[in-house]
Structure formats: C-alpha cells, structure tokens
C-alpha cells in the first residue's frame, strides 16, 4: 500500500486554507500570499517557500497560466521536481550490511527499526537487531519485542554499555551466522551535544571495524519537527554520513515540510515514511503522494 492510500483516511483533498484560494477564480496577490501561508504552515520554512513561489511565478508568467488550479498544479510539480530523481533504495552488499539509525530523542528510531526489521525478515532476509541505545531506560526491551515479532535475533549489552561495542558484537554475530543485514539502533541525542555526536561518529567507525559495512545511515525525523530539522540533519550528516531520511509520524496533522529543505540543502533524500504504529505502517517515500498530502486537509476519523 502506498503513501496515498495510507494517508487517505487522515487527509482530505485540500485544506480549508487552499479551498479559499481555489474558490477565487483570479490569481492575485492574495493567492500568492495564501499559497505562501500554506507552505509555511506545512513547515517548509520561509526561505524555501519564497524560493518555491518565485520559481512558480516565473513559470506561471512564462506559461501564461491565469487560473488558480493551474497555479496549484505548477506549485505541486515544482515541488515534485525538487524532491524527485533521488535514489531511494536501501543499499545492501556488505558482509553483512549495517543500516544505522540516528536522530534526536523521541523521533521513532526504535519503532522504525522494529517495523523495517519485520518487513525485511518477511522478505526472507536474515536480520539481526542491534540494541545500540544503551542510554534510554528499557530501550532494549522495546526493541526486543519488535525482534520477537519479526522472529529475528537481537544482540544487546548492559544499560550504559558502550554502544559501539554492542553494535560491533551484533555485526560479528551476524557475520558468524551468515546474516545479511544488521539493523542498528542508537540512543536519541540532541545534535548540539558534541560529546554524544562524537560517540555517534565512533559508533559509525566501529561498525565497520569487523566484517560489516555500513551501507545506510538513516536519519529519523519526526514530521512535527519545525525549522530546527535542517540544523539536525546538517549536524548528523556531518558526523555520521547520513544516506537517507526516514520521516515518521506523517499520519498526524503535521506535514513534515522540513524534509523539502533538507533534501534541497543537503541532498539527502527521504527514503521511508512512517504512517502509523502498526508493523506495516512504514512505506516507501513517494514525492507525488507526499506533495499531495502536504496540502491536504485533516479529517478526524
């Protein structure tokens, strides 16, 4: 099931905001202002919104579009163009491959690993879970419940143990048993804590000390995240060579527009989207569906 059908139950076609834009036949300054507002309310950010709209204005002028629907279509296609074209596949090829999950506290790293592990195991891959969050109380317990559901082994250490060594052990465990994939959890950390960011850089290095290769480092970002998301992405990319974004909690009223700026500024594509708490509520990112949902209205179930 794709993002569109997943969000279908939560989102209607157009928000009331854009409904007023659409109700007016003429494209005037008010139209542009309301489009700008819609973008800002989706957390796309002022500067990205301004950039987008100036590009849309140019195209509208060039193409001689004079109806509101036409303008909206151009805005959507500009957004889709900007998000499109990226490689969103999750790379394998290591012996084993390690997918490392990083992000600030509470974004949904453990839950994402749980869902993804279930999916990969169901696809016939031999998966090992690495409980690299040794800081948060009971984080390993949480992950082990997901590992059990997936029928996959989990390697963990004591609370407060060195996360690098836990992940290293998991990689060796996987290598010894011929498992192809290690899904490595890490503790949530605020990107301004340089000691914790150094720790993460070490985790990334040590994960490749043995036989494994880190083929994906996925930054998990919560859809409610505001403009700070860009700073987060920049900092995590710097220390851990982030290869993709997982956008979680997109089934709520938040739009996750900050990922537009993240992909624009840092060239890091969104690869997966979390749309619920269930085991299969993790779907591939689809730019067209995402852009549609960006402007859709919430419908209370």
């Amino acid at each position: 099931m794709g993002l569109r059908s997943r969000l279908g139950r939560a989102r209607d076609a157009w928000s009331s905001h854009l409904a007023t834009v659409r109700a007016s036949e003429m494209v005037d300054e008010r139209t542009w202002q309301e489009l700008g507002d819609a973008l800002i309310l989706a957390d796309i950010g002022v500067s990205t919104a301004d950039e987008l709209l100036s590009e849309v204005r140019q195209r509208v002028g060039r193409e001689g579009v004079d109806d509101v629907d036409g303008v909206l279509d151009i805005l959507k296609s500009v957004l889709v163009d900007r998000l499109g074209g990226a490689d969103r596949s999750l790379a394998l090829g290591g012996q084993p491959s390690v997918w490392l999950f990083v992000g600030v506290n509470g974004v949904g790293k453990t839950t994402t690993i749980g869902k993804l592990g279930g999916r990969e195991a169901a696809a016939g891959r031999h998966v090992v879970f690495a409980a690299g969050d040794t800081f948060r109380a009971a984080a390993a317990d949480q992950l082990s419940m997901w590992a059990d559901r997936a029928g996959s082994p989990m390697v963990s250490g004591a609370e407060g143990a060195d996360p690098s060594s836990v992940i290293f052990d998991a990689v060796e465990h996987a290598a010894a048993r011929g498992a192809e994939l290690v899904l490595a959890d890490t503790a949530g950390r605020v990107h301004t804590r340089s000691n914790l960011m150094d720790e993460l850089a070490k985790v990334r290095r040590v994960a490749e000390k043995g036989s494994g290769t880190v083929t994906e480092t996925l930054l998990v970002i919560d859809a409610t995240t505001g403009q700070n998301g860009l700073t987060q992405a920049r900092q995590f990319a710097e220390v851990a060579a982030v290869t993709g974004i997982v956008l979680t909690k997109l089934d709520g009223s938040a739009r996750g527009g900050i990922v537009v700026a993240v992909q624009e500024d840092l060239g890091i594509p969104v690869k997966l989207v979390g749309v619920g708490e269930g085991a299969d509520d993790l779907v591939e990112f689809d730019p067209v569906d995402f852009v549609d949902a960006l402007f859709a209205a919430d419908v209370t179930a």
């Binding site: 309310l41 989706a42 919560d222 859809a223 409610t224 995240t225 505001g226 998301g229 938040a254």
Partner: peptide, 15 residues
C-alpha cells in the same frame, strides 16, 4: 510538548 515542534504545535495544543 517538544521544543523542536513546528507549526503543528498549535493544532496539537488545541486538540
């Protein structure tokens, strides 16, 4: 509420 939350803070708080 998370200090990092964006525009959705208002929807959330109101609900």
């Amino acid at each position: 509420i998370d200090a990092m939350i964006g525009q959705d803070a208002v929807n959330t708080a109101e609900a």
